[in-house]
């Protein structure tokens, strides 16, 4: 009984190590093709449109409402001790440092990451990836690298849009609805928000772009056979990406503070 438990633990540990190694090798191969061969700009542009441009509406919509509801909640909390004047900086700092990068990354994962995993997964099960290899077209260079580059470009931009529209949403609620003065809202904001806060938001978005494209491409690339396999790969890619975003967010925040 005891021995079989130890064996089970050992098998589990080996399985985890094998999986991590496989993820690592996948990313290393993608980097090898990213820096070792000319970039396919047309493919990158197509994927920027797919991941970035087509996610803009949903990111703007969620950004506006996140800013609005956040302003409501913060105003409620600040009014308890008469600190309403800090509404602007609180909204801005939270959006730029935290909510913008994280929530926009989660939204893009749901919209584009899932589609990415299923698209590559279907290419795998219908032998389209084999066809690429047979035509001597490297699938990492053709499929993975453009998605990674497009995600790393798109995520920071969409994160910035999210924060911008969120601040504007907070302005609508705080200034127009709750009566905080416009000068206080924006004036205090420029006093408190520093360049390092913006850099922090961009760094987070960049790393989230890498994580999401890495996980989603990997899951699609190594999908199991059949429709069920593609469905599983899609679900896992969204779940793993979302969990990793939140875990990585904690670590990167705690390191930088």
């Amino acid at each position: 009984m005891f021995i079989s438990c130890i064996r089970g633990l050992g098998r589990g540990a080996l399985g985890v190590l094998e999986m991590l190694g496989s993820y690592g090798m996948f990313l290393l191969t993608a980097f090898f093709w990213l820096f070792g061969s000319p970039l396919k700009f047309r493919r990158v542009l197509e994927q920027i449109i797919f991941i970035g441009v087509k996610s803009t509406v949903i990111v703007l919509l969620t950004g506006a409402f996140t800013g609005m509801v956040f302003a409501l909640q913060v105003f409620y909390a600040l009014s308890k001790f008469g600190g309403e004047s800090l509404l602007g900086p609180t909204v801005a700092l939270s959006l730029i440092r935290e909510l913008g990068p994280v929530v926009s990354a989660l939204m893009i994962t749901g919209r584009a990451g899932s589609a990415l995993a299923s698209e590559i997964g279907i290419m795998r099960i219908t032998e389209q990836i084999d066809a690429l290899e047979i035509m001597a077209v490297n699938p990492y260079r053709y499929l993975v690298v453009p998605n990674v580059v497009a995600a790393v470009v798109s995520f920071p931009l969409l994160g910035a849009f999210f924060s911008m529209i969120g601040i504007w949403g907070g302005y609508l609620v705080g200034v127009k609805l709750l009566g905080v003065s416009e000068g206080t809202y924006f004036g205090e904001m420029s006093n408190f928000v520093e360049m390092k806060d913006i850099t922090m938001g961009i760094t987070k978005s960049l790393s989230f772009g890498l994580i999401v494209s890495w996980v989603c491409c990997y899951k699609g690339f190594f999908t199991e056979f059949g429709a069920k396999g593609v469905g599983k790969a899609t679900t896992q890619s969204v779940v793993i990406s979302s969990v990793l975003i939140l875990i990585w967010d904690y670590f990167i925040t705690s390191i930088s503070l």
């Binding site: 279907i122 290419m123 219908t126 032998e127 389209q128 084999d130 066809a131 047979i134």
Partner: peptide, 15 residues
């Protein structure tokens, strides 16, 4: 591989 052409059973066309 450049010497080869391959006709897949299901075509493997890029959809």
């Amino acid at each position: 591989r450049r010497k080869f052409g391959y006709l897949f059973q299901e075509g493997a066309l890029f959809d």
